[in-house]
């Protein structure tokens, strides 16, 4: 409805589901996710790539979805905040944000969680300094970042512990 001009076909896998849509050439990925697919967990906070509320993972890389056009991700695999909980069970990061009061208004939280997810994939046991660097592209106005850093740190420890025991059970050296 409404949008005129050049259109493109976009086929992507979003949170494990393959979708194809015809979109306007100028449609941003974030609008594609929110408006076209109805995945409103991804938010918009600044329009200039500073705030990271729109962060998603595209083909394994962290991307600010307000900085890329939907036609540019044709053929890609996209993960959004809606993918984190599995069968109603929160991910360790989501649990940790809850336990450590790492969110208040919750508006930055989806983007923050995607950045943190990406960070822990790259660096499973980050120092506080590495956590702060890892989320420097995500603005939060409510928490002063204190409890977000704590939540990510504690999630990483929980994950690290789990990984060690899994490896240990398999007889591998850790």
């Amino acid at each position: 409805m409404g949008e005129r001009g050049t259109s493109h076909s976009v086929t992507v896998e979003v949170n494990g589901e393959k979708v194809s849509r015809i979109v306007a050439a100028r449609q941003l990925l974030v609008h594609f996710l929110r408006d076209t697919l109805g995945l409103t967990g991804t938010h918009i906070g600044c329009d200039t790539g500073n705030c990271g509320a729109c962060s998603v993972i595209v083909d394994g890389k962290l991307v600010k979805s307000c900085m890329i056009l939907a036609p540019q991700v044709d053929g890609s695999t996209i993960e959004t905040v809606e993918s984190l909980a599995q069968d109603g069970a929160l991910s360790p990061l989501q649990e940790s944000f809850h336990e450590h009061h790492g969110l208040q208004c919750g508006y930055c939280t989806p983007g923050m969680l995607m950045s943190a997810t990406y960070l822990l994939r790259q660096n499973p046991e980050p120092t506080d300094e590495e956590i702060r660097r890892g989320i420097r592209g995500n603005v939060c106005r409510c928490t002063g970042y204190v409890n977000i850093v704590e939540a990510i740190r504690e999630a990483s420890r929980g994950q690290a512990t789990g990984r060690r025991s899994a490896h240990a059970a398999a007889g591998e050296e850790v």
């Binding site: 905040v81 909980a85 809850h98 508006y107 939280t109």
Partner: peptide, 19 residues
């Protein structure tokens, strides 16, 4: 107590005005 609001917010299920 950790907050009751969190469960929907960490899953991107909050209902903000543009939603």
């Amino acid at each position: 107590m950790p907050r009751k609001e969190d469960r929907r917010l960490v899953q991107g299920q909050g209902s903000f005005v543009d939603d």
